[in-house]
Design a protein around this nucleic acid. Structure first.
Lengths: 126, 126
DNA sequence: TTTATAATGCGACCTTGTTGCGATAATATT
DNA sequence: AATATTATCGCAACAAGGTCGCATTATAAA
């Protein structure tokens, strides 16, 4: 399963990169010049996740957001991105707060995935 | 909009209470004796949330979980339950970890909703 | 007991995300 | 450069989770 460089792949990655935030599928589709199928976008994003180029968060709106975070690059297959995400209820922006959070769990508990989202109003919208 | 005591209301609250955990719609439907419509269950749960009897978390599976937590009772209209939730990837249990978490946000950011979920394996399943 | 109106059940609907499959195109091979 | 291989794409269909409109039922007050 060797990956191929395709038009879609490059363009989606570019959108994520230049945005700097976590984007949902529809945000990506808006910010993209060409017309890429919804299924393709999801497949590309999931491939990025598998390759550790991107990580995924589920917002409190139930949607998937994908981001290239600084911690991602270099660390392959780290599914546990234990930093907080902030989603603005006004402008919709979802960003990674670069602050790792050590959460102490009770005895016998093993953490695999961190999904930490705080919503509210960002500095531009408050 | 005065609330009424109905069969569904009582039964759903009882299920939540005796479970002690956060339950999704389908978990509630399973644990309930009588047959209550899906839409009704959601409506009851959302009413509970409005009344501050229950709080809602979105899991990293994208599903809504509802729980009566100890912090809830008494504090009406507290939408910001800033404690962590743990979802077991094996048994599916979702529980409130009774440990409030103070998350420092950057300047100008205002938190409204905390949706903090860690998944992994609980003490019974690890 | 009658009345006003919350709450219910049913069905239809929406959104988000996934999957199967034939067509297309990126890479490897000759 | 031409061909073969197969990853990726686009389309359509599907599935799950959740919401909404509306006629009906049932709670609680008069």
């Amino acid at each position: 399963m060797k990956r191929r460089n395709t038009h879609s792949t490059a363009e989606i990655f570019e959108v994520l990169k230049s945005s700097g935030n976590a984007l949902s599928h529809d945000m990506i589709q808006e910010n993209i010049g060409s017309d890429i199928d919804r299924a393709t976008i999801y497949r590309v994003l999931n491939r990025f996740c598998e390759d550790g180029k991107v990580h995924k968060v589920i917002g409190d709106d139930g949607k998937q957001y994908f981001a290239i975070c600084h911690n991602c690059s270099g660390k392959k297959q780290v599914h546990s991105h234990n930093h907080i995400h902030f989603r603005c209820l006004h402008c919709g922006k979802v960003e990674c707060l670069e602050r790792d959070l050590a959460v102490p769990l009770p005895e016998g508990y093993v953490a695999k995935v961190h999904n930490l989202v705080i919503s509210g109003f960002c500095n531009n919208c408050s």
